[in-house]
C-alpha cells in the first residue's frame, strides 16, 4: 500500500530545500546567536522548557514553519502529503517528545546544526537516531506492518 504510492527520489529538490533549511539555520546562528533546533524551540514556545531562547523568538520561529509550508503550497498549488493513522501518530509523537527532550535535540538541532559544527554529542545522537529509525522501520516491515 505504502510501497505502491512511494514517490521517486528527488535529489535536486532535496538539495535545494535542504540549502533553504541550512540558510534558515544560519540566520538563527549569525542573526540571533542561537541553534535552530525545532524540538527545543517548540518546547520553549509552548512554555515547557525553563531555559532557552526568549519565548517571543521561539514563537516567531515556530509560527514561521507552517507559514513557510503554506507559502510553498499556495505558490505550487497544493502539496500532497500522506500521514499514518492517528493512533500511530499519537504514539509516535509521544515517543518523539520524550526522546528529543531527553536527548536535547532532533534532526535540526543535532543533525543540521550540530553535525555542521562538528559536535561530538550531535554526531553520536544523529548516528543513534538514524540507526534506531532504520531498525524501527525494518522491524515494521518484518512484522508485516509495511
Amino acid at each position: 500500500m505504502i510501497a505502491a504510492s512511494l514517490p521517486d527520489a528527488q535529489p535536486v529538490a532535496g538539495l535545494i530545500g535542504g540549502a533553504m533549511i541550512g540558510v534558515a539555520a544560519a540566520i538563527m546562528l549569525l542573526g540571533l546567536g542561537r541553534i535552530a533546533g525545532v524540538s527545543g524551540l517548540a518546547a520553549r514556545a509552548a512554555g515547557i522548557a525553563r531555559t532557552g531562547a526568549p519565548r517571543g523568538i521561539a514563537l516567531a520561529f515556530i509560527l514561521g514553519l507552517p507559514l513557510g509550508a503554506l507559502l510553498v503550497a499556495s505558490v505550487t498549488g497544493g502539496i500532497r502529503v500522506s500521514f499514518p493513522a492517528t493512533g500511530v501518530l499519537i504514539v509516535a509523537g509521544l515517543i518523539v517528545g520524550i526522546g528529543t527532550s531527553l536527548g536535547s535535540g532532533c534532526t535540526s538541532g543535532h543533525g543540521v546544526c550540530g553535525l555542521s559544527r562538528l559536535s561530538r554529542r550531535s554526531l553520536v545522537a544523529t548516528l543513534l537516531f538514524m540507526a534506531s529509525g532504520f531498525v524501527t522501520v525494518a522491524a515494521m516491515r518484518a512484522t508485516g506492518w509495511l
Partner: peptide, 17 residues
C-alpha cells in the same frame, strides 16, 4: 529574523519533500 528563519525553514521542508 526568527520569523524569517522559521518561514524559510518551513518552505525548505516542503520543497525538499
Amino acid at each position: 529574523l526568527a520569523l524569517l528563519s522559521g518561514t524559510l525553514f518551513g518552505a525548505g521542508l516542503v520543497i525538499s519533500g
